[in-house]
Simulated assay, not measured.
Amino acid sequence: MLSTQPIGVFDSGYGGLTVFKSIARLLPQYDYVYLGDNMRAPYGNRSFKTIHQYTWECVQLMFDMGCPLVILACNTASAKALRTIQQQDLQHQHPGKRVLGVIRPTAEVIGNCTQTKQIGVLGTKGTVQSGSYLLEIEKFFPDVKVYQQACPLWVPLIENGEYDKPGADYFVKQYLDQVMAQCAGIDTLLLACTHYPVLEQKIKAYLPASIKVVAQGDIVAQSLADYLHRHPEMEQRLTKNGQQQFFTTTDDTSDFDHHASIFYSEPVKSSYLQVK
């Protein structure tokens, strides 16, 4: 592994695979390592301190595997850990490495999707409580009003394979009703959790066709392409053999592979990686 310098893609579980899928499709030439911290997922209801600890531990594992650049393909980790990692951890321990998130790239473009200037943000409890989307969207689109809705049961439903069962419909409709009740003018809903695209068809079924549902995969992929173009010193470090490796912190790799293949839309074969 150390002979290669892949791009690392991290998530607390499977959701980051929806982003990785878009990245690998747009930039297939690079080597990649995906790591899901399934043993400790979900992150959504954990404290800032715990999420930072878990995320930083996994980022360092990816550094050890040769990754000079890691993408936090997880909104909760991006909201609660990224700033500390960028401003403190990297400077003190790995000044030559870079860690990027998914919130800022999304905030930079989401305002272009709305006609009414009213956006709903669907996320985990941790992402919503952090207020990260309120702050970031305000920077780029001060005239856009953002309404947030935590959907704490969606990730457990997805992670446990219940996303396509009839029982999931009740909880999908419940949270959609709650966010739409905040403002009748909402015309754009952001899926601010990388797990949620798995529910996208159910979500759209309970919404008028006029409401746009926005997932983050293609947004983050294009942002990464732009980043590498603007930072040739990083781009030139990355190896380009088109290789992909998948790791999980749970020792039941067969279970991970089964679920991961649903998120990635291709068969996945993973290896177990023990967290320090």
Rank of each mutant, 00 (worst) to 15 (best):
L2G: 11
T4L: 12
V9Q: 01
Y14H: 05
G15M: 00
V19H: 04
V19K: 05
Q29E: 14
Q29S: 11
D31S: 08
Y32G: 00
Y34L: 00
Y34T: 00
L35V: 04
L35H: 01
R46D: 01
H52R: 15
Q60C: 12
I71Q: 08
C74M: 02
T76P: 06
A77F: 06
S78W: 02
A81S: 12
R83D: 14
Q87V: 03
H92M: 13
P95Y: 01
G96N: 15
G101C: 09
R104H: 14
C113S: 12
T114P: 06
K117G: 08
S130I: 11
L135E: 15
E136M: 12
E136C: 12
F140W: 13
A150S: 15
W154A: 01
P166S: 09
A168P: 07
Q174L: 12
Q174H: 13
A181S: 15
T188E: 00
H195L: 01
H195I: 03
Y196F: 15
V198K: 03
L199T: 02
K202D: 09
I203G: 03
I203F: 02
I203Y: 05
K204A: 03
L207M: 07
P208Y: 00
P208E: 01
V213L: 08
V214H: 04
D218E: 06
A225Q: 15
H231T: 12
Q243G: 01
Q244T: 09
F247K: 05
T248V: 10
T249Y: 13
S265E: 11
V268H: 03
Q274T: 11
V275K: 14
V275P: 02
